[in-house]
Amino acid sequence: MLDAEMLRQRLLEALPGSEVELRDTTGTGDHFEARIVSPAFAGRTMVEQHQLVYAPLQAWLKTGELHALALKTYSPEQWKKLGPR
């Protein structure tokens, strides 16, 4: 079973220098929500930002170990302007 810390570590490896907050929304280890602020997101569309997050999690998504991940993504500049809300 996955836990928030496993996802967080994987995301930090793929997106160094990011701030990653994760929550298991159902307590069942397969539904999570994440808020990620990453320099890698600068100048990217939201679709591209989300694809950067899904890429390192692909294996878990394919097996269904990770069923759902609700995402909020921000570049540092966007976070300065928009968050925290």
């Binding site: 100048g43 569309t45 679709v47 989300h50």
Partner: peptide, 29 residues
Amino acid sequence: GKFVGGSDILMELSERGELADLVAGKSPA
């Protein structure tokens, strides 16, 4: 002409108030 995303992204762009600019061609979204 550009793919924006699915319903979650649309909702988020709406909350951030970015849809009008996007339609007007002013924002990368």
